[in-house]
Amino acid sequence: MSETSRWALPLLEVGQAQKEMTHNEALARLDLLTQANVVAVAQNVPPADAAPGQCWVVGAAPTGAWSGQAGALAGWTAGGWRFAAPREGMQVWSMADGCIATHADGAWRTGRIAGAELVIGGVRVVGAQRPAIAAPTGGTVVDGEVRAVLDQVLTAMRAHGLIAN
């Protein structure tokens, strides 16, 4: 076994000469992958003025030095471009978008957060979507103000996906 199974980090071999090269390559890849943040997601053209440590998520139609690396994480190092193939569930922080990008089902999705519930301060504030609620109609006494406010509440809850349409 000459590399790790998950990120293909090079492993040192018994009796290997110039171990520092293998070790340094592994550190360069770890630097790219650990707590990853990227300048932008889905960029196809490598920047001409990349600084060491800067990373991008390569777009679907890469050119130049990024050719053949669609969807990969591309990081500029003192030794040139390093690439890492994304894994299912991998997340990076996109500085251009100001949010998380997640690799799921073979594609990068920016700004989408998936979960079963939202808990703030130990209190569940949002859970799974509930069934539709019918708008108020009829009744013996019509109160237009209350009905208008209730309609606004229902519209807001539907718009936020808290209840079905």
Rank of each mutant, 00 (worst) to 15 (best):
S5I: 12
W7E: 12
L9M: 04
P10Q: 07
G15A: 10
G15T: 08
Q16A: 11
A17P: 07
Q18F: 12
K19V: 09
K19M: 14
T22R: 12
T22F: 05
T22M: 08
H23S: 09
E25L: 09
A26L: 08
R29K: 14
L30A: 15
T34W: 08
N37E: 15
V39A: 15
A40R: 07
A42S: 09
P46R: 06
A50F: 01
A51N: 11
P52N: 13
P52I: 10
G53M: 06
Q54A: 05
V57Y: 01
G59S: 07
A61W: 00
A61D: 06
A61T: 14
A61S: 12
P62Q: 13
P62Y: 11
P62E: 00
T63K: 01
G64A: 13
A65V: 02
A65M: 00
A65S: 04
W66P: 01
S67V: 15
G68W: 03
Q69L: 03
G71E: 01
G71Y: 02
A72V: 02
L73E: 07
W76A: 15
T77V: 09
G80D: 04
W81R: 00
R82Y: 07
F83R: 04
F83S: 03
F83N: 10
A85E: 13
R87A: 13
R87K: 10
E88N: 04
M90L: 11
Q91A: 15
Q91L: 07
Q91S: 15
V92G: 11
V92M: 08
V92T: 08
S94A: 14
D97V: 01
A101F: 05
H103R: 06
D105T: 10
D105N: 14
G106C: 05
G111P: 00
R112T: 11
R112G: 07
A114K: 06
A116D: 11
A116T: 10
A116M: 00
E117C: 09
V119G: 02
I120G: 08
G122S: 04
R124G: 12
V125K: 07
V125D: 03
V125S: 06
I133Y: 04
P136A: 10
T137N: 03
G138S: 10
D143R: 12
E145M: 06
E145A: 15
V146H: 09
R147W: 04
L150Q: 10
Q152D: 09
V153D: 09
V153I: 14
L154G: 00
T155H: 01
R158W: 04
R158D: 00
R158E: 01
A159N: 03
A159C: 01
H160Q: 14
G161I: 07
G161C: 08
L162Q: 06
L162P: 02
I163M: 02
I163D: 06
A164T: 05
A164Q: 10
A164H: 05
